[in-house]
Structure formats: C-alpha cells, structure tokens
Amino acid sequence: MADDEQHYRVVVNAEEQYSIWPTDREIPRGWSQTGFDGPKELCLEHIAEVWTDMRPRSLRERLGPNGASA
C-alpha cells in the first residue's frame, strides 16, 4: 500500500528470519528488534539487504558452509 503512513520496526526470530512489525504494537514472543525502523518500504529494503540467505539458521548450520548435508 503506497499511502501506508504506519511506521514499522524490523524484527528477527531465533532462526534469523526477518519480518516487519508496526511500532505501535508489542513485538510477538519469539521475535526481537534489530534496531531498524521506519516506513514500510525502507524496512523492506533493509531486510532485502541484510537477509541474503533465506534458509533458517538451523538448516544453514546443519548443511555447513558448503551447503552439503553433514
């Protein structure tokens, strides 16, 4: 929505998966702030820059640095 005037914060969970959450609402359990907040589009751009590997952390750890099952 282009006219969305809501401010959001970027949040991350234990699996290092990112999302946005309205700043006027309590962050859901299991998620924490990253320190970045602003308009929706800026938050989504930030996530696109920092979340370069979409796999959950547990999968990345299980597969190792070469992406092969250990």
Rank of each mutant, 00 (worst) to 15 (best):
M1V: 04
M1Q: 06
M1F: 03
A2T: 08
D3S: 12
D4M: 06
E5A: 12
Q6A: 06
Q6Y: 02
H7D: 14
Y8K: 01
Y8I: 05
Y8T: 06
R9S: 07
R9D: 00
R9A: 03
V10P: 07
V10N: 04
V11D: 03
V11Q: 09
V11G: 02
V11H: 01
V12N: 02
A14P: 00
E15W: 01
E16M: 10
E16A: 04
E16I: 01
E16K: 07
E16S: 06
Q17G: 11
Y18C: 06
Y18W: 05
Y18R: 11
S19G: 15
W21Q: 06
W21T: 01
W21C: 10
P22A: 13
P22Y: 03
P22E: 10
T23R: 02
T23Y: 00
D24I: 00
D24E: 09
R25H: 11
R25S: 04
R25A: 07
E26V: 13
E26A: 15
I27W: 01
P28E: 09
G30R: 08
G30W: 04
G30K: 10
G30E: 05
W31H: 05
Q33Y: 06
Q33T: 12
T34W: 07
T34L: 12
G35S: 09
G35K: 00
F36L: 05
F36N: 01
D37T: 03
D37Y: 09
D37S: 14
G38R: 07
G38D: 08
G38Q: 07
P39F: 09
P39C: 10
K40G: 11
E41I: 00
E41A: 14
E41G: 06
L42T: 04
C43L: 04
C43F: 04
L44Y: 08
E45C: 09
E45H: 11
E45I: 15
I47P: 14
E49Y: 05
E49P: 03
D53T: 00
M54G: 05
M54H: 14
M54E: 14
M54L: 12
R55H: 14
P56A: 00
R57E: 08
S58H: 12
S58A: 13
L59P: 01
L59V: 15
R62A: 13
L63A: 04
G64D: 09
N66T: 13
N66C: 11
N66H: 12
N66W: 11
G67Q: 10
G67M: 13
S69M: 14
S69Y: 10
